[in-house]
Amino acid sequence: MSDARTRILGKVRAAMGRETTPTPADVQAARAGALGKGTPQRPVWEESDLARFCRCIDDAAGTWVTVPTLAEAGTAVADYLAEREAGTTVHRAPDPRLDHVAWPGHLAVERATDGRKALAAVSCAVAGVAETGSLALVSGPDNPATLAFLPDYHIVVLGTADVVPWFEDLWARMREQEGFPPRSFNFITGPSRTADVEQTLQLGAHGPRSLHVILVENMP
C-alpha cells in the first residue's frame, strides 16, 4: 500500500519536473502569486446580515421566528409543534445552553444522545451564515449529529449575534476555537429535499421534512 503512495506521489513530482516535495514557503509564495491578496468573489446584499439570513431561510423552504430571550424559546417550540400537529414530545440536545429554556408544562422533553428515537428535535447552532441562510452545527456530545438528520421536525436555536456575513468569517472564527474541526461540521440550509423523480421538488427525502429556526436576540 505504501508502495502505491510512493508511486502516486512520484508520478505527480515527475509530471511537475521535480524530485522532492516543494517547501511550505515555496507553496505559499506560489499561492500568493496565483490568487493574489484580494477577497474572493461572493454574494453581496443591501439589507442587514440578519435580514439576508432570514430571507435565505425562506428561499430554502425553512421557517424562522425571533424571540427576545432563550427562556422564551420553549413557547416557540411548543407553538411550532402544535401548528404542525407534531405531537408534544421533543428530544433536546444536551447542549447546556438549552438548560435556560423554559419548557411549557405540557411538553415531554427528553435529553437525546442521538436522533434514533426522535420525531421532533431541538439543537443549538454555533453560527448562521447570512450569505446562504445556512445554520452551522458542530457535532459532539452537546449536539449529536444524528439529531439533525433522523427526526421529521428539526428545530435549531441560534443567537442573532452569531450570524456572520460570509463563510470566510466563519472559518476565521472557528480556527480560533478549541476542538475545531469536530467530526462533523454541518451546514444546514432548509429541510431535506429531492428532485430525483421527474425533476419534481419534494421535501423530506431522507432527513427532516421541515426545519425551523428560533432566533434568540439575547443569547447568553
Binding site: P43, T132, R183, F185, N186, F187, T189
Partner: peptide, 14 residues
C-alpha cells in the same frame, strides 16, 4: 446557492 446539506467531515467520532 447552497444545497440543503453541506458537511465537513474530519476523522472518526471523538
Amino acid at each position: 446557492e447552497m444545497t440543503a446539506y453541506t458537511t465537513m467531515v474530519t476523522g472518526p467520532r471523538r
